[in-house]
Amino acid sequence: MNNGALITAENLVKQYPIGGRKFTALNDVNLTVQKGEFLGLVGPSGSGKTTLLNIIGALDYPTSGSAIVIGTDTKELSHRESARLRNEHLGFIFQTYNLLPVYTVFENVEFPLLLLGMDTEDRKKAVMGILDRVGLADRAASRPSQLSGGESQRVAVARAMVKKPKVVLADEPTANLDAENSHNVLQMMAKLNEEFQSTFIFATHDEKVIGYLRRKITLNDGRVAEDIETTPQYN
């Protein structure tokens, strides 16, 4: 185990029952992630990217092995404790944005801060600050249905970043975006990564995303096939 690592996966195995058999989604995965990294879990569909992301995000439990996230073994956490870990330290960005449809942009971004119990003034300041950063301050009162795909994903990024989490987990964040919007969103995330020193972990097979990564972990059939440092093609 790498001391000081933000995330450590040790001999991680995840199996799902399918019919009467077991499907192994992750098979003896070992990796460490340091603070401030901008890395991607890359691989074809079914390679285990999302499963690994879910375990790191304390949304799922490993069958065996351990995932130590910010000093906590996620397997040992109760539902309540894993919720607290996600609330305090983790941000999520989803392929389909997952914005809350009846909330305004402001309310969507405000949501994680409400769960943190932040007071109204600080909340407002933080929400408007991050919306300003993603260029959507003027859309604060809009509903998700009034936004374009690119705008929606920027709101999702703002929601993930508003509490300045230690880790941001992004599952195929550009899969529903065109090239221009994909680059806009990725540039924004790269910038926020530098500024907030939050660790970004992507699950992706999008070349555009891969072009921004500084580390690429390739998964194949649930195993780490390659773990390399890369030079971002875009800045």
């Binding site: 919720a83 305090e88 389909t96 997952n98 949501f111 994680p112 769960l115």
Partner: peptide, 13 residues
């Protein structure tokens, strides 16, 4: 999906 999002954002079950 909304329920899943609530949970992912840290809302206790």
């Amino acid at each position: 999906k909304e329920i899943g999002t609530f949970m992912a954002l840290g809302m206790e079950r």
